[in-house]
Amino acid sequence: MSRHWKVTAVLAGVALTGTSCTPAGRAVPYTEPYIQGLEVRQAGVVTSAALGIGTCHRMELPEELYNGSDVAPPVPCTEPHQTETYMVTVFTGALAAHRERPNPEQLVAAIDKACSYQPIRPYLGAGTHDGQWGVAIWGKFPTRADWAKGDRTLRCDLLGPTTAAERGPELRVPLRNIMRRRESAVVRRCRLGARDVTCAEPHHAEWVEPPAPFDPRPDVQQDMCRQNARAFRQGSLSGLTVSAEAMDGYVACWLSHKDGRMSVGTLRGGLT
């Protein structure tokens, strides 16, 4: 199984650098294509229904995170953890009818379909001007013993972003309604030079949600981005500068300090 870990690591790396900020191109409520920017993580899986929505799970080792099942006791969401459960459902159909647990690949394929995107943004408390970044869907399924006893619970978690490569993905705050709090910097997208980082890390610019629809005229791009940035800030842009970056089919808007200094945290307005 040597390649197992290699492939898993690659998948994990790709997923962790992913972003939910695939733009819809207009300032409208999030639609499913928009949310598809969330990377779907497989590997794993579940536990009992007793571990309900809002529970946090510590899987500090890759061997634990990539394992299909997780029956470790949950931890307080204010302590270091890797995932938080946003949805609990059950396996259905022919797969669920197996008396012996199917192989992990079959279960993961089912997780891809079952762990829905829709509940995620409401769970995060995200509004029109909040874009989550660096979080991924991570499923867990029952152990073989629990499956044999009839447990078909499918746990859908959100995996936190990696802010320190040597520690891997890690959260220290609850994700439920996080977008309404300043702590949301940990799941917002910022830039340090040309590198994407979370806004909880030192950065030069912050992604303005939502991006603007594409227009070839630079002055129009700038106007649209300023308009979005004011809504994002819920106030004036004093001391800040907005830059527009034409992308493939949309215009990315970035907000930064006029003096070019680095900052930590989010510039989003109206947070508690």
Binding site: L61, E63, E64, Y66, N67, D70, V71, A72, T143, R144
Partner: peptide
Amino acid sequence: PHTWYGETCGADGSG
């Protein structure tokens, strides 16, 4: 030292 829960300690993640 580390506490392994459930199937995390086993062959190829199978438990």
